[in-house]
Amino acid sequence: METLNQLIHYVAQNGDYIWEQFYRHFLMTFYGVLFASIISIPLGILIAKYGKLSSWVLAIGSITQTIPALGAMAVIMILLGLGTNTAIVTLIIYSILPITQNTYVGMKDVDKTVVEAGYASGMTRFQLLRMVELPLAISVIMAGIRTAFVIGIGIAAIGAFVGAGGLGAIILTGTNATDGTAIILAGAIPTALMAIIVDLFLGWVERKLQPIKSSKSKAA
């Protein structure tokens, strides 16, 4: 009860600050995933088309995923120094694998006969990609982005250690303070909430992008 009261008190006192860090945290993750998508989606398409590259790229992706985020961030900090950029670069690195992997799988899953039919109908390679392959793969790619985003929210919390700010900074303050449980919660609960909300929202987007629709749902 004591903790809850302290939490309410802290939130009431620092509402603006928490909100500011919440927004910052979200933006950091968002940029990380955005840049990762810009790299990963074309990469995924490329390795889906040229099969030989795929095992290499996916293996390298898996290896990066096994490095502890804190360690990776420390190494990147040596190169980029303290600040938000370091956190964002780490986020990009950790987002590349899920997005590349899902793009690869999504593209591979496109029915070969549909591709053949499109090609034989006189589509150029680009038209095939734009009109057939991407629309059919987009929901799987979206699932990768969703995974990357949720993981990213967790990693962004560590960003506080390299001075990137965000909700992690509040948690860090809590751990440093005596009796800081309430402050830790004030940082941790919004982080968890953000992850849940983002997951739900992107899940909804993913369903909306399902390529195979039914005429009834469209009419409704």
Binding site: D111, T113, V114, E116, A117, G118, Y119, A120, S121, G122, M123, T124, M131, V132, P135, L136, P211, I212, K213, S215
Partner: peptide, 22 residues
Amino acid sequence: AVELRRSIGYVIQQIGLMPHMT
């Protein structure tokens, strides 16, 4: 090649309709 394919009809066994198109 692209023009040529547009000017020749093509039907395959697996039908290959675009599932995301009406």
